[in-house]
Write a protein that binds this DNA or RNA. Structure first.
Lengths: 169, 169
DNA sequence: GTAAGTGCAAAACCTTTGCACGTCG
DNA sequence: CGACGTGCAAAGGTTTTGCACTTAC
């Protein structure tokens, strides 16, 4: 935590990539350029991979997919690229307290989202919960704190796993 | 995750220790006995330590405190005792996505609690949010899932850290 | 050309586990 | 006694980092 990349992103971030924009790749390159970074072959491969995987995926999934686009992408590059992708709003990080974090292609909604996590199969469903954003901010303010972000996470058993006697798939 | 202890606790758990009961230690021993476990010197030391630390603490904090009561307590014993303490409702686990988990002596309230976490100093404030319990369950049900637990976490900057220019203490 | 970026492998970090010994009942 | 519990140290698994080599600009 707290790597050079994260620090770099916190200060003076150019405006985020707009996920709905048709010229996604161009926007990411713009972000890269604005930060004085370089659009390397590996970075672009990770970017393409990050956009193309459906649903929630792990860093390892991202590595596999990236390597299918560019054989030379290493694990270190994945972990170094992730903060850039988050900073440019290409992906979002979802930490549901499992052993690894999940990532998700950001698709434009700015609404607050809650995560419904199946305890058995780890499937994550995201649901809009705009009211929560207000609620969390109000709670923080009530305690003299300046709100930054919030997370609502419901652990549950999905329909399929309810039928399957709670076995991991 | 998913150790023998956790499995053991999931099935046929005797009724939890009542934190408000005056004879706490006795109740914990009762839990231990009901599970066919043994009330060892180390276990009782960890139990006493877990009850005596104020606020949120880490496994390492618990180890230090336990060792101050019984020099022979090892790190392994701490990690093996934690699921027992959780199972008997002596402590509660709080995972706010930091590198380590936090624990907290359970003090009787059965209300749902949200966590207000200071991003800078990691201080955790717990606030009753009974409405959220209903809300989370409703969201799960709406998606055909059977709710198990939920977590509302607000990351913010506490008053002290707002003044201190966000430096970690 | 030169500084940023990369791959590799080792390190870091909390937590878990295998094993031989200790001890509770 | 005999199984449960313990300490120690090593293993686990994800993420980070040091270093020398590449490469984008």
């Amino acid at each position: 935590m707290g790597s050079q990349y994260q620090k770099c992103l916190k200060s003076g971030m150019p405006k985020p990539v707009h996920p709905d924009a048709p010229e996604q790749s161009g926007a990411f390159q713009a972000f890269i350029a604005a930060k004085g970074l370089r659009a390397t072959r590996q970075r672009m491969a990770v970017f393409e991979a990050a956009r193309s995987i459906a649903g929630h995926y792990t860093a390892e999934d991202l590595l596999k997919k990236s390597r299918s686009l560019d054989r030379t992408v290493s694990r270190a590059t994945i972990y170094r690229a992730i903060p850039l992708l988050i900073g440019s709003s290409v992906i979002r990080e979802v930490d549901v307290g499992r052993d690894h974090k999940y990532y998700l292609a950001e698709i434009g909604t700015t609404n607050f989202r809650a995560q419904l996590v199946c305890e058995s199969c780890d499937t994550i469903i995201e649901v809009d919960a705009p009211f929560m954003e207000w609620y969390g901010k109000a709670v923080a303010a009530k305690h003299g704190m300046r709100p930054i972000s919030q997370k609502l996470q419901v652990t549950a058993l999905c329909e399929r796993c309810q039928k399957r006697k709670n076995l991991r798939p």
